[in-house]
Design a protein around this nucleic acid. Structure first.
Lengths: 277, 277
DNA sequence: ATGCCTTACGTTATACGTAATTATT
DNA sequence: AATAATTACGTATAACGTAAGGCAT
């Protein structure tokens, strides 16, 4: 039987038109290539080249062989790519969340529990997450509500309570509680990638000018500016209190959420040890 | 890059379920096979097996790999078969004839002229031959009539005159010429593979009982029997006269034919040197 | 005179076999 | 004890490079 390397060589020879040129491209001596092509012909038991004394060219058989060789090599490439892809997917836990905060604990926990797995996470709208859970895009998703559907397990995971973060000089900084609408119309600093929060505040604070600042610079900017911003108990838990800022609970029902961790029953074995913590 | 032999090995391993069994089938030591599969995994950079201490089994990647391997090896098989077929066809001159006689000279002449080519001949009806000439099935055909069509060359090749071959005792053996209908109703010996002759005599001698005898035994039978049969000038030219038989020309116009050698213009270079003879 | 292919000969790299090791049934 | 897989080590084979030769442009 001939081998794949010979088919690769054949393609290069077909491209170059000469053995010497192809040999150079292949980092091979021309004599080695000459013999390799002779072996290929012997294996197929059919001449593939018209040999002149100092020239070689493909005959009709050879041209047909090149077509097949190209197909076969394409397919071996597909094979490698597909298997690698397949393997990577098998080694990856895909997590989707409606908001960033619940991921902060879940991702490290998953990494700890499954050190050989890659954890892939993304923030999407709840409908997208549910769809993705059902079609297998996600192994688990984090939603701000519970789901009752057969084949889906739904476990209460965490709560998050949104807060206003105001500079002491702000007129409302003395309040013990505020509604979103109370700050509607002001300018506010905002982190990107807020997930479902974005929908809520856009709806309830339609006249507010939101200045989105990338995560890395956000804290600096909050310290330096007098603009109100959001905070939450989970953020504070993670990053500590921001100095020189007053946090005031937001009283709207929608911003005091319970996150539910949802997963298909077939990955129950993956998730239960995690949620037992 | 991995090689085809490793894909073959993978298939056998998948079939057998064990390395040792597969190694035996492959006439290989199990250690060699074990390492070959390890190399395959390294090339794809993905594990294909679940390795227990004294057991090995395909994992999900491996099963996918087997599917691809099967496809690829099928395709290499196709490649070899197709190229061999293609080559064989390129090395074959396909000749079609309406009757056996004109082939007797043409085939040896072609063989002489093109000693590297295979000459493939068959006897078919004229319509089939013309169709085959146009679709490339035949490089040249022999017809009992001339054809006027663009792209087709038609050269007068040979004549053949059908004769009755009668035992001396036959009542008509003294005739200087006969029509087919004159013997209609009798029993006659016939060779097989008569081509277009068959149509003519069936039409003109509908009440005749034809006893078809295979070519090899035909002459023996003719000698031994008193049945009338056919002969022709070309047959006599080839085989000599049959002793103890009278040959009488047949006067019907249709059985005194001129064969035309017809070929596509693109194979003119093949045929002209032949017909120059 | 240079470029291109083939053949001959010695070398190297890679896959192989043997044998030892470990573990399972 | 028998079966099965891996690993270590020496070996063999197959592809390789170098070099020489022929031929054409």
């Amino acid at each position: 039987m001939f081998e794949l390397y010979q088919l690769e060589q054949l393609l290069i020879v077909a491209d170059c038109g000469t053995l010497s040129g192809a040999a150079e491209q292949l980092h091979l001596s021309q004599s080695a290539l000459s013999r390799s092509m002779q072996r290929l012909e012997n294996e197929i038991q059919v001449p593939l080249f018209i040999r002149h004394k100092n020239k070689i060219e493909l005959n009709e058989n050879g041209k047909l062989a090149v077509e097949y060789a190209r197909k076969i090599l394409d397919q071996t490439g597909d094979m490698v790519n597909s298997i690698r892809d397949y393997d990577r997917k098998r080694r990856t836990i895909f997590v989707g969340s409606c908001a960033p905060a619940p991921l902060w604990n879940l991702i490290p926990a998953l990494s700890d529990l499954y050190p050989d797995m890659t954890i892939s996470s993304e923030i999407r709208d709840s409908e997208v997450l549910l769809q993705g859970l059902q079609d297998g895009t996600y192994q688990t998703i984090l939603l701000p509500f519970s789901v009752e559907e057969k084949g889906i397990f739904c476990v209460k995971y965490k709560e998050e309570h949104l807060l206003f973060s105001l500079p002491p000089a702000h007129p409302l900084s003395g309040s013990s509680g505020l509604y979103l609408k109370d700050l509607n119309g002001e300018s506010m600093l905002l982190r990107p990638q807020l997930g479902f929060w974005e929908h809520i505040i856009n709806e309830k604070m339609p006249n507010t000018h939101f200045i989105v600042q990338k995560d890395t610079d956000f804290d600096e900017l909050v310290k330096a500016s007098a603009l109100p911003t959001f905070n939450s108990d989970l953020v504070i838990q993670r990053e500590g209190k921001v100095p020189n800022r007053i946090t005031i609970p937001i009283l709207d029902e929608e911003v005091n959420v319970t996150y539910y961790c949802c997963y298909a029953s077939k990955v129950k074995s993956i998730m239960t040890p995690l949620l037992a913590q």
